[in-house]
Amino acid sequence: MTTPRTTGNRWTGRATATTLVAIAALYTLMPLIWLLFGVTKTLPELYASNGFSPSAGFHVLGNIADLFRQDDGIFARWILNTAVYALGGAAAATLLSVAAGYAFDKFDFRGKGKWYALVIAGVLVPNTAIVVPLYLLMSNFQLTDTMWSVLIPVMVNPFGVYLARAYSSGAIPGELLEAARLDGAGELRTFFQVGLRLMAPGALTIFLIQFIGIWNNFFLPLVMITDNDLFTLGQGLFTWNSAVGQNPDYTRMVVVGSAVATLPLLALFIPLQRRWRAGMAEGSLK
């Protein structure tokens, strides 16, 4: 008696879920599809043709060549800068988060609870709110308009510390550390050779979260940096986009540039996706 009803429910449930996912997928993919069509177009076509129809010709190569020629080829420089900010910042943030999370999990020290509360408070403060105070701070140290003004703030990620602590408590048995200590390893060596290795999947998660965050970080570099040679991709594209009234051709550059700017993220994500998912799940279970 109950069986048919359950099947029916499951079917409608599945259909609803599928529909919702399909809508979400469409919603997410539409801009990307628009972008892919946009890359093939000339400026007049971008404005006059349907966004989801291809160009009359094929202008991808010409558009990309123009992109890397625009403003003396500064786009390549922006890619490089963004890579430096994202790789450097994410690497440093990961190491710091993992070390701090490990310390919070495995050590007892005075005021631990309060320090940890401070970290959690850091998670709750929106990044945007601290950008202008950071600018004034950097300005005191004569660091505005340098790479450090963007790199230093992104080297710290309280949410990463939180994740790392959770991960550490699940992934590193205390007995293992005892064994390492008994074998005569110092605390630093224990961390780097035992703790860090066991936390690698969690560290990868933190690295990716921070990497995407920095790659898409917009407001911080916008405030800190004026030197065009130090721009990030997002900041550069925004600056171009704001100048379309002066030169509409920047619209084309922004479309093509946005498409090119997504490639490094794809290149990083597709190979790492499986591991990342594993890391996320493990961290959340424990």
Partner: peptide
């Protein structure tokens, strides 16, 4: 040095 358009 190119800055964002004034009003932007």
């Amino acid at each position: 040095e190119k800055v964002p358009a004034g009003t932007a």
